[in-house]
Each structure stands twice: as structure tokens, then as C-alpha cells.
Write a protein that binds this DNA or RNA. Structure first.
Lengths: 215, 215
DNA sequence: CATTAAACCTACCGTTCAATCGGTAATAAA
DNA sequence: TTTATTACCGATTGAACGGTAGGTTTAATG
């Protein structure tokens, strides 16, 4: 009884929306809101950012904002969900070689220096999510875990192929990589412009490769 | 006219306390408060921690706490000031060789895994201080700057002495070190026990030395 | 012993904040 | 055109928060 199936409209997009009416105005609003929220979270963090201030920035009252995102937490989760969707498109289920992985990370750092706003948002939220009961804690934890496992897998294959020294511990090396990237971002957040993230990370990666590869 | 100089009491400790009466009970309270505050800041961060809850933990009402620390910011700054005092005792104005510096950092990481509570407090505050107008922002920024300059100086001397490859950029290497230490702490904060900070940092430092020294 | 500061307390205040209630107006679908 | 849903708003609420006012008791000092 859930589908009357009389009209010609049966495509998946409509089916997933399930009784959800769309309006172009609403979609645009959602976009504005997510952008404004990211900006506020980037400045003040999630906890200190004011839900009402975000509403005001897009020309809405607080109830007006709540119409789109029923609570502050929902707004945060929507931002994280969108990040999932976007990175899902880009990365895909590929399984790169360890050299390609490292080169890819360098590219990521390069790209990050261009889009400072988004990067700042997620770096701030990442740091803030270390506190107790933070609504984004599990998201960042799982994300770090996934990346770590992926990288460790690459290094393990490198060892198996005889390209990487066997005494290298894949999981530890993966943790080291993540630490360096997150740490660099923290330093960069504090003094953007004073620090050359790309140069530092590149020289680090070069030294890393030289240190683990079998010549 | 600032000193009446009639009584025999003229030692510096008394002079700096300047009309301040001491009581053993108060000193003990101050100690309790600082400890409780660090615990709360470690759990929730400065912003989300409740001033009144800290008071309650040491068996005081909020005004009772305010008697000792006139505001929440004052309490935070007192914690930072104490850290300054303690690290001032330990480090001193020494100027170690770059090898001694790196070994010292490894020792610091080792020591940190023992005293998790304090470390967590400062790591959380460090991360939180990245947000706008955070009361601890300048403290952490200046601290990072000081450490960075010190390390860069060590590396520069190493290059001058012909022990380190001349293409190494001292300031960038110093930034890399700080990034790694802060990043490792973030990862460790999220899953303490799951990550072997000492092992990861040690192998990183070993590879770093091998990569920059002239053989 | 007298004085004075320390060591607290109860009661209260002003603000900020996320969220609710109960609506109205526009608009898309049947 | 009817109907249901979207897209909002003004007023309000309740809780949490940092901080103040004004007091009393305890204890150190001269």
C-alpha cells in the first residue's frame, strides 16, 4: 500500500524522496545554510557557534532555520554527511600502490591550501571532537580509522612486494602519516600564511620514502 | 615610599606577596581547584566546562570558587602560568645540540604517556585555542613559536657544523617536529591505549636523523 | 586582645542559548 | 479548485551559565 504506482513517475530519486515535496527555493536555502554554518563552525567551533546567528546570516529567524534543520546537531551531521557524499565521489573504492598513495596525500595537502575555508571547518571540528560526548566524535574517529586501515593496507602490500623494508610497521606508519597531516593543519590554522604546509609536507614525504624503500 | 622597611622582614617572597596574607588552608584549596579545573578542562574543554561544576567538585559554592579565582578566565590563565613556572624549572636556558634535542623530545613523549591527565588537558586546550578569541590562543601560539625558534636554532648550528645536510631548512624542520608531536597527541587522545605514541615517534625520529645527517 | 584579611555562604541578576508553540502565507499536486 | 505541504515568523520558555551583592565566620598578625 506504500506505492500506488498509477502515475508514470517511478524513478529511484523520487522513490527515495518518499512523499517529500521539493521546491527550488528550499534547496537553495539549504545550500546557503550549510555554507553559513560551516563558516561559523570554522570561526568558533561547533559548541560556541550560535544556532540563531547562523539563521540570521542567511536572513532567517531561528524557527525559520529549524524548519530546515530541526536541531543544531542535525545541522552539524548534515555537514558531515555531505562531506561523506563528496569524498565518496572523488576517492572511490580504489586500492592504490603505496607510492601513489603518498603522492595523492601530497596532492591533497596542495589542494587544501587553496580551499582554506572548508579545510578550516573540518580541522576545527576535528580538534573539537576530542572533547567528551562531542556529536562529531564518532564521525571523525571512524574516518581516521578508515584512512588508517587503507594506508596500512598499502604499506603492507609494499612490504609483501619487497619494495618496503620489512621492519616497517604498516599500522604505525599509517598513524604517523595521519598525525603529521593533522598536526600540520593545526600549525597552519594558527598562523596561515606564515607556514608553507606544502613544502614541509613534501620534504617530509620525500624523506619518508627514502627511509622506507629498498634501494 | 613603597617599602616601610621597619620590620626585619625584607626577603623577596614577602615583598612580592605585598600585603597578602597566606593561610595553609587557602593554599591547599588552590591546589585542589587547579587540579579539578584541569580535569574538567581535559574532559570538556574550557568553553564547555562549567565553572560552577568545578566549584562543586572541590566542595565549594560558585562564589567560594570566585574568592580564589575571580573569573573563569583567571582560572585558565592560572593553569597556564603554573605550566610556565614548572617548565621553566625543568628546561632552563640551555642550548642543546640537535641530537640532544631530538633525544630530549623522545624523552618528553615517553614521559607524557605516563602522566596522561595533564597531557590531555593541555592537548585539549591547545586544540580548542584554535577558535576565535580563545583566551588561551596567544599563550599556545607564543609557546609554539618559542619551541620552534629554539629547535630551528639547533638545526642551524648542526648545518653550520657540517653535521646536517645543508639543504635542510631549519625552520621548516622545526615546524615539522611540532606538527608531528601535536598530531600524535590528537590521535592518542582519541584512542588512548590503542596507539603506541612512543614507538611511532621513536621510529619517526630515527628516520629523521638518518635522513638529515651527513654520513 | 583587637584588628583585619581570608574563607566562605545564600540569594539574586542579566544574558545567552536551543528549542517550542501556534500561527500565516505561498505554492505545488491531485 | 481543493488540499496538503512548504516556508516561514513572533512570542515565549526553560535551562544553564558566569558573575555580583552583601553578608558571616574563621584565623592570622601586630
Amino acid at each position: 500500500m506504500k506505492g500506488r504506482s498509477n502515475s508514470r513517475n517511478e524513478d529511484p530519486a523520487e522513490a527515495s524522496a518518499l512523499r517529500r515535496r521539493r521546491s527550488p527555493k528550499g534547496d537553495e536555502r539549504r545550500e546557503q545554510i550549510l555554507l553559513a554554518a560551516m563558516k561559523h563552525f570554522a570561526d568558533d567551533g561547533y559548541q560556541s557557534a550560535s544556532f540563531a546567528a547562523i539563521a540570521q546570516e542567511v536572513g532567517l529567524s531561528l524557527p525559520g532555520l529549524i524548519h530546515y534543520f530541526p536541531s543544531k546537531v542535525d545541522l552539524l551531521l548534515a555537514i558531515l554527511a555531505r562531506r561523506d557524499a563528496e569524498s565518496g565521489k572523488v576517492i572511490g573504492p580504489s586500492n592504490p600502490s603505496w607510492r601513489a598513495l603518498l603522492q595523492g596525500l601530497v596532492d591533497v595537502v596542495k589542494a587544501n591550501t587553496k580551499s582554506a575555508g572548508v579545510v578550516r571547518t573540518f580541522a576545527i571540528l576535528n580538534a573539537e571532537s576530542l572533547t567528551r560526548d562531542h556529536p562529531a566524535a564518532t564521525w571523525f574517529a571512524e574516518r581516521a580509522r578508515a584512512v588508517s586501515r587503507m594506508a596500512a593496507q598499502c604499506f603492507a602490500e609494499g612490504i609483501a612486494k619487497g619494495e618496503i623494508r620489512p621492519e616497517v610497521r604498516p599500522d604505525q606508519l599509517a598513524a604517523e602519516l595521519i598525525s603529521m597531516m593533522d598536526g600540520l593543519q593545526m600549525l597552519w590554522l594558527r598562523a596561515p600564511g606564515e607556514i608553507d604546509m606544502v613544502a614541509i609536507f613534501t620534504s617530509y614525504i620525500d624523506r619518508l620514502i627514502a627511509g622506507i624503500e629498498i634501494r
